[in-house]
Amino acid sequence: MSNQSMLIDLTSCIGCKACAVACKQENGLAAGNTFLKVWLKEYLKDKVVKYYVHQACHHCNAPRCQAACPVGAIERREDGVVVQDEDKCIGCQVCVTVCPYGGAKIMANGKAGKCSFCKHRLKSGVPSACVTVCPTQARIMGGREEIVREAERRKAELLGKGCSTRLEGINDIQTKVIYLLPE
């Protein structure tokens, strides 16, 4: 399953946080360690905008964390998955501070940790744990083109219902994880 992309549709997310727990279960993360945090964001515009932020690695095409890491513990693989090697990590936490998405996180032992796109599952062709569990198809995975098409389709459909949204990750900044979020 190479060149897989993920769409996170925050307009369909119901905030059940099953993805966050599935992530912890799949990656064997003890208390205090998270790769994915889901939290409520709310603000006023011409209407009440309320959605759940999914704070995790976006798997950038040009990852700043990789550039900042002094020991080369973070690497962007050929298939676009940005992986971090815990054994190489020296715990300087610079990747954490340079990430604009809050994707790399400080773990309980002081090292950094981040979403690996469930690379161990990808190997056997199974989608990431968070995608498998999501009850509302707010998280889907597939080939890049297919996912971009689906994202555009959902955006257009929402616009038709008078709900304006924005897509992140397919325009000027390219990321493997695409976000559709309300505006």
């Binding site: 064997g28 003890a30 715990g91 090292k111």
Partner: peptide, 13 residues
């Protein structure tokens, strides 16, 4: 000592 510990133990099977 915490240098030796691992945060993530992905499910093997």
């Amino acid at each position: 000592p915490q240098v030796l510990s691992h945060n993530s133990k992905p499910m093997a099977h």
